[in-house]
Nucleic acid binder design. Structure first.
Lengths: 226, 226
DNA sequence: CTGTATCCATGGCGATACTG
DNA sequence: CAGTATCGCCATGGATACAG
C-alpha cells in the first residue's frame, strides 16, 4: 500500500509483500490451496475480512487470478506469484535454522494435523485403507485425538473416530510431535528419546517414519549447537 | 512483534521480518553499511526513531550486534543476519522482474547516486583521479547535478562542484538513468535511444559503461513483454 | 555524530455478526 | 460455501525537536 519511495527492487517487492499475513497466504497458495475456506484452514487466526482484502490486493498486483463467478471462486497463482516459491522456501529454511524456539502459542494441533495430511507421501502407503491415530498428550481439550485415513490415493483427516480399524497409534506431546514434524529432531531421535511413541506391530512401527515423513523443509541443515 | 500463532518456519521468519522497513535495513547492512547515519542514507524516508527501534529489535532477535559504547556504535550482522542474503537477493530479483513500473515518488536522485557510488567497480577505473559529472534533466531543484570522483581506490560523491577536471558528463532524465541503473535497459539501448548521453572523448565514451556498470541485480532476466 | 523523547493521527487489523 | 459489513481499539510509524 504505502510506498517506500525507493526504486530499489527489494523495496518495490516489499511494498507488495510486507503486510501482515500476505506471505503466509502466498505460502498456502503455493502449497496448492485454491478456495477461500481452504485458504482459511491454513491461516485460521486470520479474519475472513482480512483474507478477502489480501486476496484482492494480490489480484490487483497480478500475483493471482480469481476464476468462477458465483459462490465457487477459485484462486490461482500467476507466473509472478509462482516465482515467489524460492523466496518463501528461503524464508522457511532461514526460519528453521535461526528461529527455532517455539512458544506455546505457536503450537496448534489442527494446523499440525492439517499440514501432515496434505504432505504425507501417499504413494508409499499400502494400497488398502490404512488408519493412523494420533494422540496428543498434555491437554484434554478437543483436538487431542485425530485419525489420518489413507485410502484410494487420498488422505483424510478426522477429529472424531471414523470407526475403521486402526493400524497404528502415534503418541506424544503436541510440542514433541511438532518438533518432529518440523525436523528439529529425527524420527529415530524422537522415538529413542521417548518423546514420541508408536504403537503397532513391528513391521508397521518400522514403516511409520516412512509413511508420515516430515515437513517439506525439514531437511534444512540446522545450526550447530555446541 | 505480534505472533502468527503458527509453528511454520515461514511464519516464524515473518514475525521477525515483516514489519515495515525491516528488510530494507537488512539490505543496507548486507551492502556494508555499519553506522547509524550511513544506514540512514540508505533509507532516508525512515525516521531516525524508527530506525533505532528496528536496530534494537534486530539485535534482540540476534540478527546483528552493536559494538562500541559512546557515540561510535558499529552495527554488524551476525551469521543469522548474513544468511538472509539469498532471500533478499531473491526478493530483489523478483521485484525487478514483476514490479517494473516505477512511480514518480520511487525516483530519488540522492538514492540513485549513493547506490552508484558504492557499487561502482573502482578497479576498472584509471589509476589517476577521474571525475564523472551527472546532469539529471527535467527538474531544477537541488540534486540535479552530481560529481563522482574516483581516486586512490575510493569513490566520492559531491553535490557541489569539487573543482577537478571533469573526464566525462553523463546526461539524462532521472527516470532514464534510474531505469538504466536497474538494468531495465542496457547502456547501448539507453545511449542509442537518446535517453542517456555521454559527453567525452571517444575512448572515455566507450569506457563509461564499463566504469559505471549497473546495479548488482541488473542481470536478472526480465519478463518477455510481447 | 548517534541517537532519544514525545506527540499525534492514521489506519491496520482483530472480533463479531451477518448475507447471497 | 464464500465472502461482506461494521465497529473500535491500539499500535505503528511519521514528524519534529531535542540530548549526550
Amino acid at each position: 500500500m504505502s510506498s517506500y519511495g525507493q526504486f530499489c527492487p527489494v523495496a518495490k517487492a516489499m511494498e507488495v509483500l510486507d503486510e501482515r499475513w500476505t506471505l503466509l497466504v502466498l505460502r498456502e497458495l503455493l502449497l496448492g490451496s485454491t478456495h477461500f475456506n481452504e485458504l482459511r484452514r491454513g491461516v485460521p487466526k486470520m479474519s475472513p475480512a482480512l483474507l478477502s482484502k489480501r486476496l484482492k490486493s494480490l489480484e490487483r498486483y497480478g500475483l493471482l487470478t480469481r476464476e468462477g463467478t458465483q459462490g465457487q471462486t477459485m484462486y490461482q497463482l500467476t507466473d509472478a506469484g509462482r516465482e515467489l516459491a524460492p523466496v518463501i522456501d528461503g524464508l522457511g529454511a532461514w526460519g528453521l535454522r535461526w528461529i527455532g524456539d517455539l512458544g506455546e502459542t505457536d503450537l496448534d494441533p489442527h494446523l499440525l494435523m492439517w499440514d501432515i495430511r496434505r504432505t504425507v507421501p501417499i504413494d508409499r502407503w499400502p494400497r488398502r485403507r490404512t488408519v493412523v491415530s494420533f494422540e496428543l498428550q498434555g491437554f484434554r481439550s478437543v483436538g487431542s485425538h485425530w485419525w489420518l485415513v489413507v485410502a484410494d490415493g487420498e488422505a483424510d483427516l478426522c477429529d472424531v473416530d471414523p470407526g475403521y480399524e486402526v493400524t497404528a497409534v502415534v503418541t506424544g506431546s503436541l510440542r514433541a510431535l511438532t518438533r518432529l514434524w518440523r525436523g528439529d529432531v529425527s524420527w529415530p531421535q524422537a522415538v529413542r528419546g521417548g518423546d514420541v511413541a508408536i504403537s503397532a506391530n513391528s513391521f508397521v512401527t518400522r514403516q511409520i517414519p516412512v509413511w508420515l515423513g516430515q515437513s517439506r523443509l525439514a531437511s534444512t541443515p540446522r545450526v550447530q549447537v555446541g
